[in-house]
Amino acid sequence: MVKKVKRYFRLYKVLISQFFKVILQSKVDFLMGLLGFFLTQVMGIAFLYLVFEQIPSLQGWTLDQLIFIYGFAQIPRGIDHLLTDNIWMVAWRLVINGDFDRYMLRPMNIFFQVIAEKLQPDALGELLIGAILVVISLGKGIVIVDAGRILLFVVSVLAGALIYTSIKLFFASLAFWVKISGPFLQVAYEMANFAKYPTEIYAKAIRFIITWVIPFAFVAYLPASFFLKQEVSAAVIGIEYMIAVVFWCIAYAVFNHGTKVYESAGN
C-alpha cells in the first residue's frame, strides 16, 4: 500500500515537472492565461462597485463584505482549477474522439491519470485575486480572526476545492453516456458565479439548488459568512466538509461506472 502511494507520488512528480518545462517554454501563453482569468474576476468586482453606486447595501451586506465573499470564493475555485483542469477535456474531447483509450490501457488509477496529465497555471490568476481580496478585507478589519477560524479556513478551502472537483467530475462523466458533456459542465460550473452573492436574495427553490443540489453555496457564500459574522456557527464548515465527502463519493462512483460503459470512438 505504502509502496503504491509512493509510486503514485513519484509519477505525479515526474509528470508535473515535465509540465513545468512545457510552461517555461511558453511564458507569453502563460501570462495571457493568467491575465484572462484575472480580468474575469476584476470585472466581477467592477460589477459590484457599479451596483453599489445605486444601493447602500444588498439585503444587509455591505460592499466590503461582498468583496470578501467574492475573494474567498476564488481560493477553492483556484485550487481545484490548478490541479484538476484536465477533467474538462474528458467532457469536451477525450471521450468523443476516443483518446480516453490511453488511460484505460495503463495499469494505474484512471482518475489519477486524468488529473496528473495537466496543471493549469491560469488558475494562479484566480488564486492571486482571491488572496489580494482576502488580504484587503483583513486590512479593513471586517474579518474575524482567531485560532479556530484560521484552522477552519484551511479546512474550508480544501473541502471547497473538493466540492468543485466533484461537481466537475460528475458532469464530465456524463460524457460516457452523451459523448460530449461540455455544455452541462460549463453551465454547472458557471453556476458557481451566482453563489458568490448572498443566497438569501434568491427564491427558495433556487436557494435550495445552489445549496444542496449543486452545492456551490457551501464553497463560497456560506463559509465566507462564518468568517464575517460572529453569530454564524462553525457547523457550516462541518456541513461543507460532509458535503465534500458525499459529493466526491457520488461523482467518483459515476465516473467509475462511466469508464465501464465507455464506448471509445469509431462507431
Binding site: 495571457m32 484572462g36 470585472m43
Partner: peptide, 18 residues
Amino acid sequence: FTTYIFGMLMAKEALLSF
C-alpha cells in the same frame, strides 16, 4: 501569433460581457 489563445479568449469574454 500565439500558440495558446485560450487566455485571450477568456480575457475577451470578460471584457465583452462588461
